[in-house]
Design a protein around this nucleic acid. Structure first.
Ligand SMILES: [Zn+2]
Ligand SMILES: [Zn+2]
Ligand SMILES: [Zn+2]
Ligand SMILES: [Zn+2]
Lengths: 161, 161
DNA sequence: GAGGTTATGTTATTTCATAACGAATCATCT
DNA sequence: AGATGATTCGTTATGAAATAACATAACCTC
């Protein structure tokens, strides 16, 4: 990845202050509606994802978990990530072994990412899977989830290269 | 994955005997054309992938490597996998941490998979990425590779469910 | 056959993720 | 309130996946 990239990794700047609080509050509301519990560890991991400037690895989250510098235990974070993924608040990026907060306002959606191999940003977008879907159904498959990860260069890094 | 699946995992039966030898020989020919070397470890890992009935994990390959039961050392297999991926003889399936031999006759292509969550088979298909590509280019991205992995139920498992 | 390049063998380590189990919390129904 | 069952959490330990580092060997090609 982009160790030789001089761009500040700011294509997806993390949230701070009121914006962060609003995002967490919105998640809390969604949880109440579905009678899910946004418990302290889940809330904390969501905060960390929202604050970050880019995809976070699980052990980055583990290290950053305690406000006092105390790391979390791995199961604490992995459980929170499972929950956040299940509720649609976060996505795992398979090809990076990393996690991002969901950036799409809408409720349920199939996540897809444009991943910059230079600066490391991962931009979520909502693709039209209709053709692939049709092909799969034609072959007799019942598709449940789709993972799409496109790698290349983001606009900023493309210019410099 | 499908521990409760009673289907024999035979949607992608492994190669044996002459068919296996032919497939390996075809790979050898392709290598000669491009002056790449199909060395013993590379050939051995390719054989193991072709013989398998489904996606193989790296440590499955490591365990099965020696004909005498001796495992390989991890770097031996990971290096061979890197080579096979580079030449297009194998694909990594990110969401499974597993590898399959390429099933498409054509030369270069963007791989995509239909993965059955019941029986574990992974069928390669060649999708039309045009819409996603267009969307990415419109956003200013220069896409280099695309990973698409669809999970669901294969025809056989869909019937049973 | 000398020198540069590519591939391998080997040891050790790093990174990523989950199993297992008891204690605490929460919702629900007497 | 008190019993009950379901979730969640804290903790320890382990398993699974991938790579770093470096010495040796094989292979061009000049
Ligand atoms: Zn999303
Ligand atoms: Zn970039
Ligand atoms: Zn292929
Ligand atoms: Zn199946």
């Amino acid at each position: 990845m982009g160790d030789d990239c001089r761009h500040t990794e700011s294509a997806q700047p993390g949230l701070e202050g009121a914006a962060l609080a609003n995002a967490v509050a919105a998640a809390a509301v969604k949880c109440e509606r579905t009678r899910e519990r946004l418990t302290p560890p889940r809330r904390r991991v969501l905060e960390l994802l929202l604050e970050a400037d880019g995809p976070m690895k699980a052990y980055d989250l583990i290290a950053a978990y305690g406000q006092d510098g105390e790391p979390a235990k791995p199961p604490t974070v992995y459980r929170a990530l499972d929950f956040l993924e299940r509720l649609g608040f976060a996505h795992r990026i398979e090809s990076l072994n990393a996690y991002v907060p969901c950036r799409m306002e809408g409720t349920s959606h199939r996540a897809a990412f444009l991943i910059c191999e230079c600066c490391g940003t991962a931009e979520e977008f909502e693709p039209d899977f209709a053709p692939q879907f049709a092909a799969a159904e034609a072959a007799g498959y019942a598709v449940r989830t789709v993972t799409l990860e496109a790698r290349g260069l983001c606009p900023a890094c493309k210019v410099e290269a």
